[in-house]
Amino acid sequence: MPRLGELEAAIMAVLWSVPDPATVRDVLGALERDPQPAYTTVMTVLDNLHRKGIVTRERVGRAWAYRPAQSREEFDADAMAAVLESSSDRSATLLRFIGRISPDELARLREILAEEKR
């Protein structure tokens, strides 16, 4: 899960606040930033967000209309989980209950689990 840049975050906030899919012009209208970014800048950012799978889009007339792929809550939770995942197993920063598991280890675990359930 990629972290959002500042403008990306502002644009996502707009998309999450409106009920319907929004076009570049809609987003630009709702965006309260000083100085106001250029139309093409917003278009590029939305295109990038679409490429990263953070928004989906559909044709409305000649323009694209964008909507968030996930709710804000889901997105925040994923981002949070991703940060935790990205940290190493055991550091002075974060101690993980279970370290990363190798395929061999997983196979052995399944064996132990089967023995336990006998």
Binding site: R100, I101, S102, L109, R110
Partner: peptide
């Protein structure tokens, strides 16, 4: 542990679970 996705990259080093 059994609910984790295996990390291929770790197979050499191995965990201690």
């Amino acid at each position: 542990a059994a609910a984790q996705a295996p990390a291929e990259a770790l197979s050499a080093a191995g965990g201690d679970t």
